[in-house]
Amino acid sequence: MEQLGYLQQYVPVLVLMLVALGFGLGALLVGSLVRPKRPYAEKLMPYESGNPPVGEPRYRFSVKFYIIAMLFVIFDVEAVFLYPWAVTFDKLGLYAFVEMIIFIVILLVGYVYAWRKDAFTWD
């Protein structure tokens, strides 16, 4: 597959994705041809251990989940910034190492701040 261009390397990925989608949708489609369908009101109720559902299922939830999501966005981007550095580490030598120590120290300042603000404590 050497003669294929740069973008064409990704064609097999696309094929696999289509096969994966086809597998999921196909299984549901073929299943829908053979399975029974006998719905009635009680069967279609949300499951709540056999009791009729009480109240609204989409109630307010803890703000902690939002904080976790924000921290994820910050730290995951930091991790992605580390990748190009890691890949070229051998070629860049000591200079890159010192640069990255500075980057990680700045990252740690934010991390310690979040820790001290109890963002990681679940209560």
């Binding site: 369908k37 006998r38 279609l44 109720m45």
Partner: peptide, 11 residues
């Protein structure tokens, strides 16, 4: 599993 009914809650 293939022959089981596919229940989709009304809500």
């Amino acid at each position: 599993l293939f022959f089981k009914e596919d229940i989709i809650p009304a809500a």
